[in-house]
Amino acid sequence: MFAVVKIAGQQFKVQEGQNLYVPHLEGNAGDKVELNEVLLVDRDGTIEAGASVKSTVKAEIVNALVQGDKVIAFKMKRRKGFRKKHGHRTHYTQIKIESIA
Rank of each mutant, 00 (worst) to 15 (best):
F2C: 10
A3D: 01
A3L: 03
V4N: 12
V5T: 02
K6A: 08
I7E: 07
I7Y: 08
I7A: 05
A8S: 11
Q10V: 00
Q11H: 14
Q11V: 01
K13G: 07
Q15K: 14
Q15H: 11
E16V: 15
E16P: 11
Q18F: 12
Q18P: 05
N19L: 13
N19Y: 14
L20W: 04
Y21T: 02
Y21M: 12
Y21G: 03
V22C: 11
H24T: 04
G27K: 00
N28D: 14
N28K: 14
N28P: 00
A29N: 11
D31F: 06
D31E: 13
K32S: 11
V33K: 06
E34R: 09
E34K: 11
L35V: 03
N36K: 15
E37I: 03
V38C: 02
L40W: 03
L40K: 11
D44Q: 05
T46D: 03
T46F: 11
T46R: 01
I47T: 13
I47Y: 10
A49P: 00
A49D: 05
G50R: 05
G50T: 07
A51H: 02
A51W: 02
V53M: 06
V53K: 04
V57N: 01
K58F: 15
E60M: 04
I61R: 01
V62E: 12
N63I: 05
N63A: 10
L65A: 06
L65E: 15
V66P: 07
V66L: 13
V66R: 13
D69K: 15
K70Q: 09
K70G: 06
I72D: 12
I72P: 10
I72G: 03
F74C: 04
F74W: 06
F74I: 04
K75I: 06
K75C: 08
K80S: 10
K80T: 07
K80P: 01
R83L: 12
R83V: 15
R83Y: 06
K84Y: 04
G87I: 02
G87T: 10
H88N: 08
R89F: 01
R89C: 04
H91I: 00
Y92H: 10
T93P: 15
I95V: 13
I95L: 09
K96M: 12
E98H: 05
E98N: 07
S99C: 09
S99A: 15
I100G: 00
